[in-house]
C-alpha cells in the first residue's frame, strides 16, 4: 500500500473509532476540516509511526504542523529525513 493510501486508510479508521465523519479528502482540504479533531490527528500520527516506522514531525526541523492533507502526506513521503 502506498504511503498516501496507508494514511487515508488510517484516517478512515481513526474517524470511525472516534465516531467522526470523514470529509471527502483531497490535497487542498485543511486537516482540521478533514473531520478529525486535534486528538484524532494525534492518534493518527501515533498509528502511522507504527505502520510506517516514521514520525516526520519529530525528525523535521519544521516546528509547524502541516495545514492541508496534501502537506501532511508530503511530510510522510519525504520520510521526515
Amino acid at each position: 500500500m502506498s504511503i498516501k493510501l496507508t494514511i487515508m486508510d488510517e484516517m478512515a479508521r481513526v474517524a470511525r473509532e472516534h465516531g467522526k465523519t470523514l470529509a471527502p479528502l483531497n490535497d487542498d482540504v485543511a486537516l482540521l476540516d478533514s473531520g478529525l479533531d486535534s486528538l484524532g490527528l494525534a492518534v493518527l500520527v501515533a498509528r502511522l509511526e507504527d505502520r510506517l516506522g516514521l514520525d516526520p514531525f519529530t525528525t523535521s526541523d519544521d516546528v509547524q504542523f502541516p495545514v492541508t492533507v496534501g502537506d501532511f502526506v508530503k511530510a510522510y513521503e519525504h520520510g521526515g529525513h
Binding site: 473509532e17 494525534a42 492518534v43 500520527v45 501515533a46 498509528r47 509511526e49 507504527d50
Partner: peptide
Amino acid sequence: VRAMMAEG
C-alpha cells in the same frame, strides 16, 4: 502517551 493512544 502516543503509544498509549495507539492502544487506547
